[in-house]
Design a protein around this nucleic acid. Sequence first.
DNA 1: ATCCGTTCTTAACAATTGTTATCGTTGCAC
DNA 2: GTGCAACGATAACAATTGTTAAGAACGGAT
Lengths: 171, 171
Amino acid sequence: MIALFDEKLLTIKRFEPKTILVNEGSIPNEMFFIIKGCIRAWYNADGQDITLQFFFEGDPATSLESFLKNTPSTINIETLEECEVGILKKADFSDLLKTDPKIRELFYETAIDKLFIYSNRLLSLLKDKPFLRYQQLLAENPGIFQRIPQHYIASYLGVTPVSLSRIRNRK
Amino acid sequence: MIALFDEKLLTIKRFEPKTILVNEGSIPNEMFFIIKGCIRAWYNADGQDITLQFFFEGDPATSLESFLKNTPSTINIETLEECEVGILKKADFSDLLKTDPKIRELFYETAIDKLFIYSNRLLSLLKDKPFLRYQQLLAENPGIFQRIPQHYIASYLGVTPVSLSRIRNRK
DNA sequence: ATCCGTTCTTAACAATTGTTATCGTTGCAC
DNA sequence: GTGCAACGATAACAATTGTTAAGAACGGAT
């Protein structure tokens, strides 16, 4: 996706691990495309840290809702590893959305794809038990436990870190 | 939303309760707007019936995915009560999407709204316990237990019917 | 009226998960 | 090096949920 944007509009930057890119309560004015590294979106539920999504190389990382509605973000976005990202300014992106039908088309397609991803994840949370969700995650992304602290994966799967540790040591 | 479509494109029809409108495996060629009654979308997971969504008066009921991608539906859609619905043919809707920018705009907005609804439901499944989800559903839709069989609501909440019955009888 | 299917409740038990706490390891800062 | 924070494994116990089965209430069909 990043390849579609004019290089003049993109700023390449490096971030240390655990750098907050989008802060809960603030309105983000940038969009991040991951070139190298990984990023996590999480929700603060009264101190309880809930991982909503992991982003990897090639993924765009944003709080879509606040980006679209211009409202304060309800989620936080932070780097997990040292990251190299392409940064696109919100104003530039908005211009493109208005003027470039291809970008607009692509953007809506991306949103609709995300809709299906969410709906599948919802279904999995409704029908599958944690153990099966763990196995499926491992099948989709075998290296994830080598890249991401386990307790972040736990909340992503909807279980406690203790429970995930138990699940992993099941035969 | 139904008000936006030319009346000439809409067929009004009545259906008995428990009428299947969209069948898993088939490609739907109609879109249903509920005038009166309620409808349920469900997924068949190896015989296990998982309710994904309830539709009420004013809601459009479709398998969005198969409608958009022209692929066989992975879900079933059926009436729960006697229903009066406005039916829009897929071909007519596709034409409108191409020719009418307003409809297109509205359609994408609807899709994005749905994205946020899904993302909130996802978050709730990750962070809240069944009892809290039950309370929240009741707060949003106090009459739902008077309209919809409880075991359908159970799978919508991600618990078994037995568990929901217990939850409801808690103080 | 009788039969049958649907729905919900309840009970008993098994399985899983949550909670809290402890401990060992690792890596980083000083 | 020492100290400290982050991370994960494990244990013990509580709480919740799942599973299976039985029974009551209701409505529709015959």
